[in-house]
């Protein structure tokens, strides 16, 4: 299933994030979630949007390094230990998590999580087999 995520390579300096969000806003794109990984020199902005292809094209045309990749998205019960249970499952099965972040949701009682692992399909299969709800783009 998986969902497509847009990532953009940016300078770690004032104004970088604004520039990216501004470009996407002008194109009328809706941002569902956003997460920034930063190092001393650069940052990677990861975005879930309603039209990743269009977003990537606009940014690339403007000279940005933008990339689309599939990541796993899933819903866990919004209770203490809800996420810990899913992570425990992944860890015991040797899945390596590169990064993860939360996704804004209006669904009652559920917490949405986006995650990049070494193998998205395998991660999703593992979670699904253990009763965790996997999300696709239509469900966001």
């Amino acid at each position: 299933m998986a969902i497509r995520q847009l990532s953009v390579f940016v300078e770690n300096k004032k104004g970088s994030l604004h520039e990216i969000t501004d470009v996407l806003a002008k194109a009328g794109l809706d941002l569902r979630s956003m997460c920034v990984a930063d190092t001393q020199n650069f940052g990677i902005v990861r975005i879930i949007t309603n039209d990743p292809d269009k977003a990537a094209k606009i940014l690339t045309d403007e000279g940005h390094a933008a990339n689309i990749r599939e990541v796993a998205a899933f819903a866990v019960p919004d209770v203490p230990g809800g996420l810990a249970k899913a992570l425990n499952l992944l860890e015991t099965n040797g899945e390596n998590i590169e990064y993860m972040y939360a996704l804004v949701t209006s669904a009652e009682g559920k917490a949405y999580t986006v995650m990049r692992t070494d193998d998205t399909a395998r991660t999703e299969a593992l979670l699904a087999a253990n009763g965790i709800e996997i999300l696709d783009e239509a469900k966001l």
């Binding site: 995520q5 990532s7 390579f9 190092t39 650069f42 690339t60 390094a65 933008a66 590169e98 990049r116």
Partner: peptide, 15 residues
């Protein structure tokens, strides 16, 4: 400058 096509969403790859 990193050529756009070499960017793959990973901090690890860049470092």
């Amino acid at each position: 400058e990193l050529p756009p096509e070499q960017f793959d969403d990973s901090v690890k790859t860049i470092t």
